[in-house]
Design a protein around this nucleic acid. Structure first.
Lengths: 99, 99
DNA sequence: AAAAGTACTTTGTATTGCAAAGTTAAAATT
DNA sequence: AATTTTAACTTTGCAATACAAAGTACTTTT
């Protein structure tokens, strides 16, 4: 028997990627430092999780200059948003069954 | 800034442990074979996740004989239930912020 | 010239996840 | 009596993460 658990997306099992996605669901083009600060994680950790989400095409990366400084911002792709919503729905059905 | 993400319980990040706990939230004393079948995982995988949850005192293990056969059953402890509810609440607040 | 900011990449270690195979002991089947 | 099955693990082995810390490169501010 396959359960509703199979609708859980492995890409979002990690606390940090859950955080990244929920930030990017409600804000487009959030910059590196902001995400890092919001999640209270190291540079390298954020960079690697972003890379993982980018490879899955769940997150898009934009690089530009603000004044003279480099600036990297992130946004969720529509595929990313859809997958994340699916994941949250799977969680929601667990919550409903459980509480 | 620490976000609501910090209320996510590392113990429940795994899809399988999420499954185990949601089964044990609504049923007490579910046996090994039933949980295994519900989650469609191998013996060893279930055993190791159960051990992890047991070490955290989120799950209690009862061993008895049914007729002449050994029978292992699991139930969530009250601490386990509480922690799981907290975790689900954290997820729920993400869902609410997000959708 | 030195320090600090931006956004990484690399390194190294530790942990985890999981399937598959091995184990143990009793029970059921042949 | 011998073999097979059931139940519930434990062990093994490998691959994949996770994460902090340190290193990098280039720029800008002091």
């Amino acid at each position: 028997m396959k359960s509703y658990i199979e609708n859980i997306n492995k890409a979002f099992e990690s606390r940090i990627r859950l955080g990244i996605m929920s930030i990017l669901m409600v804000n487009d083009w959030v910059d590196f430092a902001t995400v890092k600060e919001m999640l209270d994680i190291t540079d390298g950790n954020l960079a690697s999780h972003i890379t993982a989400l980018e490879k899955l095409e769940y997150v898009e990366v934009r690089k530009q200059f603000v004044g003279k400084k480099p600036n990297t911002t992130y946004a969720a792709t529509s595929a990313g948003k859809k997958s994340f919503v699916d994941h949250l729905n799977a969680l929601e059905s667990i919550i409903k069954k459980t509480t």
